[in-house]
Design a protein around this nucleic acid. Structure first.
Lengths: 337, 337
DNA sequence: CTGTTAGCGCTTTCAG
DNA sequence: CTGAAAGCGCTAACAG
């Protein structure tokens, strides 16, 4: 089946290409009613469908954006992406999402290929040390917004959760229930991993403002692979914590696995709170108190900021933070005096 | 910053456009070593990056495919997508994924827009009654492969799990542990929802081959919203089941919620198995025996089939089924005589 | 080994 | 109100 083009339609309707083009772009201000009719009929008769590629080439706009994410398998990313896609759908924009696996080279390659495909902009969860790449985009005026990680050297719109507030929420909840020996577990820290860093610093700050002791041994930052060993160590200390914050969902799962294996009972032996939403929070025994990231708000905002940049209606780049929300369930035990 | 094009490079290198084009496409068979050098230098000096749009227009190939999925928030879809993207990455193909929310109109609109963008093909989780749309694609020779749902009227490559086998696996496991009163819960059935249908039919068949009674009351197919009520009813019958299969992850969660609320203990009061992988299977008390879909294999195969169609190396359309895998944990109790 | 030429399918002045 | 013509950036014969 041969591709049929605008010229075929024009010929069929006995009219010129440009008029058909006008019609397609709904610029029928001065167009004859019957011309319109004729075009319309020809289009359906021929089963014409326009070639956006050609249009984009001319208009220098593809109505396509790129999203760079570490891994779509991660729940937070997936939600953010969904929110972005919903926002894009309203504007008839499509999204190409790429998994960088936290590999800066892979990210760079993807971004360059998408640029070659002339995408209108990028929303990226930055994969670490790629500053020069972003810098170049900036210089080329490529619309760009970051999610989740702040790169302080770069003037780029960034949207993320108020991570310090999240830890604070957790600490306050533990404190309210009478806990004083608070621990936190976070995966390995890297300088560009804003959320982990901020959640940890927020935790420490909150300890202080709540006049709670900060014990270095309780501040666990460890590769997920070896987290369980580390926990093993902490929970065989003579004065183990009574409450523990999981800095993200993966950490939570590791913790739970460890507790299960070690026969440490929730919430009697240990109270926990997890940052990040997990699908089983409700059905677990006990239900797990969680602090959710406003993933949809974050995605929506990021999309809006990008659209503003694309449409040249953007203001100065800023960092936008969204409030976390605590869902109290049963995993924090109330301690009596 | 003005976009710099192939002509600029040609001019800068004192050479013609076509030679530069050759260079870019690595057809430097007869190209002078120094010409190559010159081009190379000009390219970096000018910071040239090719415009794939223009190339695609000419070549009639965009190296982009569309994926239509009900909702990326669903775990199975996400995994399949990830597998597809990995396969695409090897071929330098990009994917545009669209959420249809099971809405055929939305699906149709998306597919038509992507066709207008000249994508090279589609992988789709069909959203129900859109046969005419697919039919048209077929007639236009648009490469197309289905995942998860079979549309028997259409000759289209389809890849999915062997769903009947999954239920059979569950029944066998229950039987092995001495259970005879087996129930199954599935969300609402629609004629095009192959997996649900097949899992249910597989369940019944397996009951028979294992000489187990099939009791209609135990075959629960219900909207997720009202599933809990229905379970309530089943578990207050005089002769409740001792084992129950959750036909998918969402159903599992509903079931667990119900059991928790109703103080029905796992696995003492009820044994369960869930089809679909869930992130908490291991950490739950008790660990939940699950039957996993080979999502990655499915995604990979779908991508390969699509590539074959794109490259005109495809054989006759077929249905490909992949084996499920059972992970035994602690949610099935062994019954004594 | 390199340059010329003619498009890919569409949009967009600019005349008429 | 409609048509002619140029051109978006690149590729692909075909000459030379």
């Amino acid at each position: 089946m041969k591709k049929i083009t605008i010229s075929d339609v024009a010929k069929h309707a006995n009219i010129s290409k440009s008029t058909v083009s006008q019609y397609l772009n709904e610029r029928y201000e001065y167009m004859g009613e019957q011309t319109k009719q004729r075009i319309h009929e020809s289009i359906i008769e021929l089963g014409y469908s326009p070639n956006y590629l050609a249009r984009s080439l001319k208009q220098k706009k593809t109505f396509t954006i790129g999203i760079m994410v570490a891994n779509i398998l991660h729940g937070f990313s997936t939600k953010v992406i969904r929110a972005i896609e919903d926002a894009c759908n309203e504007e008839n924009i499509h999204t190409i999402v790429c998994n960088t696996d936290e590999d800066p080279e892979k990210e760079q390659k993807y971004m360059e290929m998408l640029q070659a495909k002339q995408v209108d902009g990028f929303i990226v969860f930055p994969a670490g040390e790629n500053a020069k790449v972003y810098q170049r985009m900036l210089e080329q005026n490529t619309p760009l917004v970051f999610i989740d990680r702040i790169m302080s050297d770069l003037k780029i719109d960034t949207v993320l959760m108020d991570n310090e507030r999240a830890s604070e929420l957790a600490v306050e909840n533990f404190a309210k229930h009478g806990h004083e020996k608070l621990a936190v577990a976070t995966p390995e820290l890297k300088p560009y991993m804003t959320p982990r860093l901020e959640r940890l610093s927020g935790f420490k700050k909150a300890l202080q403002t709540n006049n709670l002791p900060v014990k270095e041994d309780y501040l666990i930052s460890e590769n997920l692979d070896s987290l369980q060993e580390r926990l093993q160590h902490v929970f065989t200390m003579e004065d183990p914590p009574t409450a523990m914050l999981a800095n993200n969902d993966l950490t939570l799962v590791e913790m739970l696995e460890f507790f299960k294996k070690s026969n440490i009972r929730l919430p009697d032996d240990i109270s926990i709170i997890g940052i990040d939403d997990v699908p089983f929070a409700n059905v677990y025994h006990p239900g797990i108190t969680t602090i959710e990231q406003p993933a949809f708000k974050i995605g929506k905002k990021a999309a809006e900021l990008l659209f503003d940049q694309i449409n040249d209606t953007a203001s100065e780049p800023e960092v936008y933070r969204f409030a976390p929300k605590l869902f109290e369930r049963e995993s924090v035990k109330t301690l009596d005096e």
